[in-house]
Amino acid sequence: MRRITRKIGAPLAAALAVLSAAPPATAAPAAYFVMTDITREQFVVQLTDPAKIQHARDLVNGVTNERPHVVGRIAKQSAPYNARWSYHFRPETVDFFDVAIEVCDATIPYVEDHLDEAGGAFLPGLVYCPWTSRLVRELPAP
Rank of each mutant, 00 (worst) to 15 (best):
K76Y: 07
N82F: 08
K76W: 04
R90A: 07
V99Q: 13
R57Q: 08
T107W: 07
V71L: 08
T36S: 14
C104F: 12
I108T: 03
T107R: 10
V70C: 01
P109F: 06
D58K: 13
Y81H: 13
T48H: 02
F33D: 01
R84E: 15
P80K: 08
T36L: 11
Y32A: 05
D49W: 07
P109A: 02
E117C: 11
Q54W: 04
A79W: 04
I74L: 15
V44A: 10
G9P: 00
H69S: 11
D113Y: 09
P11W: 00
A79E: 12
A30D: 14
L16V: 06
R67C: 04
A15V: 01
E102N: 03
N82Y: 09
A100V: 03
F43G: 03
A14Y: 12
G62W: 11
V103S: 05
T107H: 06
P29D: 14
G72N: 08
K7W: 07
G72L: 03
A14R: 15
E92M: 05
I38V: 15
K76I: 05
V103P: 00
H88V: 05
F96A: 11
A106F: 00
N61W: 00
A21R: 13
T36G: 13
G62S: 06
L115Q: 12
T48D: 05
S86V: 10
S78R: 14
F97W: 08
Y32D: 06
V45R: 00
H55M: 04
T48C: 07
E102A: 03
H69R: 15
A14C: 09
I53G: 00
R90V: 08
T64V: 13
A31R: 15
R67V: 09
P29C: 06
